[in-house]
Every structure is written in structure tokens, then in C-alpha cells.
Design a protein around this nucleic acid. Structure first.
Length: 732
DNA sequence: CTCCTTTGTCTTTTT
DNA sequence: GACAAAGGAG
């Protein structure tokens, strides 16, 4: 086995196979290489069997790559080696054992949307007003409690006399009861229930301890308490635990990530060997310097200095524009320049803090005929038509899944309205039936008499699908559903751009099902559903596809690109308004780490852009340049510190052509009028819905719209966006 | 029961 | 601006 390709520290990390090891791996320091070599070394030199190894990665994509790399290196397939994410690992364990916790082994996994629906149901049943108790915050509280391994009972105990927390405890209880009744787990349950399984059933724990004698965890800085406990339990017998992480890249606090897991590793595992990988192989010197300068403003870090032998490289670029449209135009123009100088599309990434920022960028890329691919945002499996189809599949796989049944009971329309559905829920609840069972017994229930025939027809159709499952292929099942329910027919009848897009998506879904059926070891309906619920969008990242990548800074973690644009570097956007307003320096520090992650994605070239004004949620904001850019010393920006970009009115690249986006249909509503036609001028009388009639004092262009100052007399002088507020010219 | 319009809230980030 | 929920008409 060749270790000569590794530096001293990397070799040390590979060779120390026994006992607890903490690898502090700076950005671009070759940690993936270390991990794959380590696994290969375990198998080849130490004679460890692949099935004794468990490696946890952050994404499915990373897992797959790591496995392939190991297999390529040792020339043997390792089918029994578990390389996967926390969630997938837990699902695998639970599928074998969850009956011990009173669930059925064919449980389904609820995504965010399902979770919210179920919560809403709880609200209804408990008579809780979602105005006074925002759904999102309740959901958040329950989710983070689960991350902290706090059960409903425990939560209630801790709530004490606190009214708010008592109320949430009530919801949490019911929510959990309903999940179990639907034979469903949410994301957080996957980990929580596995820990519970291990704590309540030591024999099961011991089985997995003996099986996984060598455990490795990547991106350890982003593990939360429940994940930590899971690993601690699994590793406690043999203690061959190797964790890899970088405290400077911890960016998932909002998801419960506990940075102390990595900061206190040596406390938890006293004899741990700590190895620091400090040589960066990825970034040019300028880029790394910039990143180091930014992150040096954080306190409470593990001491380390990331350095590189790489050349200085080209200076980093900082560009200011008037607004987000010009920012996007600059980016598009600059991408074209990069391409002309020989860069490939797939080597360019466009990063931003919030998903909402992608729209304007997409628009300009399309006009400039630049192929791109969008990751995140509205995910493929979250689209209405896809979720509908999945709900059908879920109903077939698990009729107890009330949320799925309710989603599709009247999609497409079969004359089963809200009133009927409410009555079914009511009845199911008082008599403790599954929603689906009520459908079958509808004609015996007085309040459902009128709808009974429709309900039974629906239920029978689902049952007949169920009977078919063992005999036909999954693809055929999906096609059968589309046909028998009339779903496809209805879309075809609509015949709009939108419905066409939906049909496209359905076709893509079918081909994904076919892919699954071909590639899976033992394809099954529940296996398909599981895969669907656990894939992240980034898992579909594909090098083959020669297109610019657009994604949030969070999604970019673990990836690298020769050329990176980070857009929207403005106070209030990045760092986010929330982190500034909280007044907690720790929140700013998390944003700064996110910035650090962003910068260190770049190998050769990085561009920072910020806009003086930007539309956020319908109104224009004026933001100062981000503090993070102030933290980068001037000399790194090259000769000209700040450049300003001014588009010329007829920049040739922005033709109105649409471009075909290769694989995924991206939802964009084009074209957005660049020049909104005003029907009035200064001095005219205009009408407004709320304020009535007024006189136009001033008109200023702002993005695609105009900012108009109007004197509404006693209602005051207002600044309005002409298009947005639908200002109309009025006669006297 | 369905379709259409209006209203209000919202967003940081995601397995 | 986007989307869901609520309200009103047929």
C-alpha cells in the first residue's frame, strides 16, 4: 500500500487505527483522501473485514464517492461496508429492529411538509390557534428537543409552570402519538429512535458494537447531541472511533449542531490522539489568505494555522453594483469572460446566502445563454405533482399514513370536499380508527352516507393497487396510478405551460423510479420511498453536466470549484439580518464561518459582489457592504480595491433567447419585464388602492420597477414601487 | 363542492 | 413577490 502520496500528518492519521482519534482537518487539507486511505489500510494491512467498518458522511453523494474510491484503491467491492449518512444508517438499523419499539418495520419517513401538516392536525384537535402559536416555531422547538434527545414526557417535566412550554408539551405529545399511529417517523426521530433502541435494548446495541469495530465520522463539527450519543454508544465497546472535522466550518447550529462535540472531544475521550491537517492543497495563496483573515475574527477556535504551498494566484475581486439586477448582469458578463479565457462552465459556482437570491441570477444567466444547474430551493421531490404521486405510493405501501391519504383523497378532484374529509377525521379520531379504514366502512356511518360511494370507490382503487404491487414493476405501478386516477389526463387537459412542466417532471420521476429499480439490490416500494425521503438535492450534483452550479453557501460545503462567485455580500443579507439583530456575537461568528466555508470552496479565482440596493420581500433595502469584506486586507484585492460595475444599456450578451436546461426543469417565470412602462409622470395625479388619490412628486428607476414619491395629502407623502403597488394614473 | 379573489405572513441556512 | 388560508359567488 502506497502512503508516499500523503504528507506526514496525513500518514499519521491513516496509521493510527486503534483508539479514539480526532483529526482537525482544515479546508482543502485532503481529509477525504485520508479517510479513504485509512479505510483501505484497515482492510488491506490490518485484515479488518469491510463489514466491520462504519463510515458516516454528510451527504449520500459523499458516501457513494468514498466507497467507490476505497473500492478502486483496494480493487475489491465492499458491499457489506456501511458508508452512509447518519439518517440512512439509522433507517437501516431501524428497518431491522424498530418493532421492538412498537412501530411497524415498514414505517414511512415524513419530510418537513408532512410534519407541518401533521402538526396542523394536532392544532386542530387541541383547538390551538396558529396565529398565537406559530407553526414554524412549535415545529422548531419540537425538532430541537428531539435533537437533544428530549422526549415529550421529559419536555413536559422541564416545562414546569411555564405556560408556553406546557402548551408545546401538549402538542409534542399528540404529534408523537399521531406519528406512531401513522406508522411514521420524522427526520429527527430517525436518530432519536435509534438511540432509544440502543438504550432500551442492550443486546441490539451490542450486536452493532461487535459488528462495527471501526467507526469513522466525517464533518464531525456539525453533529448534534443525538448523533453524538449514537456514536458514543456504538463506539463505547471497542473505542476505535475516528472523527474528522473543522470547528471553523461548523455552520449548522440552527439544526442543532453542537460545536462542543468537536471542541470537547478530548474531554470525552481522554486518551484521544489529536492530529491536525494544516496544509491546504486546494486554494491559491490569495484565496487562502483572505479566508484566514476573515476567520481570524472569530474567538474560541481550536488553535491552527492553515497554510499552502500553492502559488499566489490572481487577486481576488470585489465588485459593487447598483442593485441585484446589475449584480446578476455583472456575474453573467464575468462568466462569459472566464469562458472566453478557457474556463469551463462546470468549473464555476455561484453561491449565495438565501435561496431567494437565485431567481435574479437565473434570469440573467438564461438571457446570456449560460447553462446552469440549480441545487436546493424547491427540491424536485417537493413539487406538487411529485408529492402527489409519492402520496399515492405511500398510501399503497402504508394505508395508516393518514397524511398521505388525505393529500390525495381529492386529487384529482373526485367530489370529496373539505366537509367530508373533516367528518372522516372527526370520526376516525373519536373511534380510534385509521383514516383509511373509515373510508371502507363509509356506508355504515350516518354522516358519511352521501359521500359513501365516492369514498369506497377511492378506497377500493387503492386496495386494487396494493394487490398489484407484488406482481408488477414499480414503474408500471406508477404508470398505472397516473392512468387509473386520471391524474395525467387532467394535466393534459389543462394544456398550459405550467401543466406541461408538471408532466415533464412526472416523466422525470418515472425515469428516476426506473433508475432505482435497476440499480437497487432488492428494489421494493418501501425502499424506493426511503430513498426519496433521504436524498439531498446536492446528491444529484453531477460533474458530467457542463453547467454553472448555483447553490446556497450551506449546500456548497464539501465541494470545490476552480472559480467561485459569492454574491450578496451585504450587511443584513450576509451576515443575515437575524444574526445581527439577535445581538449575540456567536450568531455572527456562525455567519463568518459560513463565509469562510464559501471562500475556501475556490481553487483559483474568487469574486465577491455586493449591491447597493436590493428588493427583499417586496420592498427595496439599502445595505452597506458586508463586514466580512472589510475584514479582508486591501492588498489582497489587487491594484484596484473596489470596482464598480455599470451595465451598458445594450450589453450584447443579454439576448432574449431561452436556453435549454439539460436535465432538470427549473421553475422560472420568464420573461420578467426589464422595462416596466409607466403610465404617468411627475406632477400627475395617481390612484392607489389604500391611500386614494395623490400627486407624483418624484420618479426614480429602481431595478425593473420605479420608486415613486407621492403626496397623498392628509394621508402623507409615501414612497411606493409603481408596479408593485399598482399605481394608476387618475384624471382630476 | 368548486372556483375565484383577497388577505396576511413570510425566510436564513437543511438531513 | 410567493404562497397558503380564508372568504364569497355560483
Amino acid at each position: 500500500m502506497k502512503l508516499s502520496a500523503l504528507n506526514d500528518m496525513q500518514q499519521k492519521a491513516v496509521l493510527q487505527t486503534e483508539g479514539p482519534v480526532l483529526i482537525l482537518a482544515g479546508a482543502g487539507s485532503g481529509k477525504t483522501r485520508v479517510l479513504t486511505h485509512r479505510i483501505a489500510y484497515l482492510i488491506e494491512e490490518k485484515g479488518i473485514r469491510p463489514q466491520q467498518i462504519l463510515a458516516i458522511t454528510f451527504t449520500n453523494k459523499a458516501a457513494q464517492e468514498m466507497k467507490e474510491r476505497v473500492e478502486a484503491q483496494i480493487g475489491v467491492l465492499c458491499r457489506d461496508m456501511w458508508v452512509s449518512t447518519f439518517h440512512s444508517t439509522c433507517v437501516r438499523i431501524l428497518r431491522m429492529n424498530i418493532d421492538k419499539l412498537g412501530y411497524d418495520r415498514s414505517f414511512v419517513i415524513y419530510d418537513m411538509d408532512d410534519q407541518k401538516r401533521l402538526l396542523k392536525e394536532c392544532y386542530k384537535q387541541l383547538n390551538i390557534d396558529d396565529k398565537a402559536w406559530p407553526l414554524a416555531s412549535t415545529h422548531n422547538e419540537i425538532s430541537s428537543s428531539k435533537d437533544e434527545l428530549i422526549s415529550p414526557e421529559e419536555y413536559e417535566k422541564q416545562a414546569g409552570a411555564d405556560f408556553r412550554r406546557q402548551k408545546i408539551a401538549q402538542v409534542y405529545h399528540l404529534y408523537q402519538k399521531k406519528l406512531q399511529g401513522n406508522n411514521a417517523l420524522d427526520f429527527d426521530d430517525l436518530i432519536f429512535k435509534t438511540v432509544q433502541l440502543f438504550t432500551l435494548h442492550p443486546d441490539v446495541l451490542e450486536y452493532y458494537q461487535d459488528r462495527f469495530q471501526y467507526i469513522m465520522v466525517d464533518e464531525y463539527q456539525d453533529t448534534n447531541t443525538s448523533q453524538y450519543q449514537l456514536i458514543r454508544l456504538l463506539a463505547s465497546k471497542y473505542k476505535n472511533l475516528c472523527v474528522v472535522g473543522d470547528d471553523d466550518q461548523s455552520i449548522y447550529k440552527f439544526r442543532g449542531a453542537n460545536i462542543h462535540n468537536i471542541l470537547d472531544f478530548e474531554k470525552d475521550f481522554p486518551k484521544a490522539l489529536v492530529i491536525k491537517l494544516e496544509q491546504n492543497y486546494r486554494c491559491s495563496k490569495s484565496i487562502l489568505d483572505a479566508a484566514n483573515q476573515v476567520i481570524s475574527n472569530n474567538r474560541g477556535r481550536k488553535a491552527k494555522t492553515l497554510w499552502t504551498d500553492n502559488p499566489e494566484g490572481t487577486p481576488i475581486q470585489k465588485i459593487e453594483t447598483q442593485n441585484e439586477y446589475e449584480e446578476a448582469e455583472y456575474v453573467a458578463k464575468q462568466i462569459i469572460e472566464e469562458i472566453e479565457e478557457g474556463r469551463e462552465y462546470k468549473h464555476i459556482a455561484l453561491l449565495y446566502r438565501t435561496n431567494a437570491q437565485s431567481r435574479v441570477l437565473e434570469e440573467k444567466l438564461i438571457r446570456a445563454n449560460i447553462p446552469y444547474r440549480l441545487y436546493g430551493g424547491v427540491r424536485f421531490y417537493e413539487r406538487k405533482e411529485i408529492k402527489d404521486l409519492i402520496a399515492y405510493l405511500r398510501t399503497i405501501a402504508n394505508p395508516s399514513d393518514d397524511i398521505a391519504v388525505q393529500r390525495i383523497i381529492n386529487v384529482p378532484k373526485r367530489g370529496i370536499g373539505n366537509t367530508t374529509v373533516d367528518r372522516i377525521i372527526e370520526f376516525a379520531h373519536t373511534e380510534a380508527y385509521d383514516f383509511f379504514d373509515v373510508l371502507l366502512a363509509a356506508d355504515e356511518i350516518p354522516v358519511l352516507q352521501r359521500a359513501a360511494s365516492k369514498l369506497k370507490a377511492f378506497a377500493n382503487m387503492m386496495i386494487s393497487f396494493q394487490h398489484q404491487v407484488p406482481h408488477i414493476k414499480l414503474v408500471e405501478l406508477v404508470e398505472q396510478i397516473l392512468k387509473d386516477t386520471g391524474y395525467l389526463q387532467e394535466l393534459e387537459r389543462e394544456n398550459t405551460d405550467e401543466s406541461e412542466g408538471r408532466i415533464e417532471n412526472i416523466k422525470e420521476f418515472i425515469s428516476k423510479v426506473a433508475d432505482y429499480e435497476q440499480s437497487a439490490d432488492e428494489p421494493s416500494l418501501s425502499g424506493l420511498l426511503e430513498e426519496i425521503s433521504l436524498v439531498a438535492d446536492i446528491d444529484n450534483y453531477n460533474e458530467e453536466n457542463n453547467a454553472v452550479s448555483l447553490m446556497t453557501l450551506h449546500s456548497a460545503k464539501g465541494l470545490e470549484f476552480p472559480c467561485v462567485f459569492i454574491t450578496g455580500l451585504e450587511e443584513g443579507l450576509f451576515p443575515s439580518y437575524m444574526s445581527i439583530a439577535s445581538g449575540d456575537e456567536q450568531d455572527i461568528e456562525e455567519e463568518r464561518r459560513l463565509c469562510y466555508v464559501g471562500i475556501t470552496r475556490a481553487e483559483q479565482q474568487i469574486y465577491f459582489t455586493h449591491a447597493r440596493s436590493r428588493m427583499v420581500r417586496g420592498n427595496t433595502q439599502y445595505n452597506r457592504m458586508s463586514r466580512f469584506l472589510e475584514e479582508i486586507p486591501v492588498y489582497l484585492y489587487g491594484e484596484t480595491e473596489e470596482k464598480e460595475f455599470r451595465p451598458t444599456s445594450n450589453t450584447p450578451i443579454f439576448q432574449q433567447n431561452k436556453v435549454n436546461i439539460p436535465t432538470r426543469k427549473v421553475k422560472i417565470d420568464m420573461p420578467t419585464p426589464t422595462h416596466f412602462q409607466l403610465t404617468f409622470e411627475e406632477g400627475d395625479q395617481v390612484k392607489h388602492k389604500k391611500f386614494g388619490q395623490g400627486v407624483v412628486l418624484e420618479i426614480r428607476p429602481a431595478g425593473a420597477d420605479y420608486e415613486v414619491t407621492v403626496d397623498f395629502g392628509e394621508k402623507g407623502i409615501k414612497k411606493l414601487m409603481a408596479h408593485l403597488s399598482k399605481l394608476q394614473k387618475a384624471d382630476h
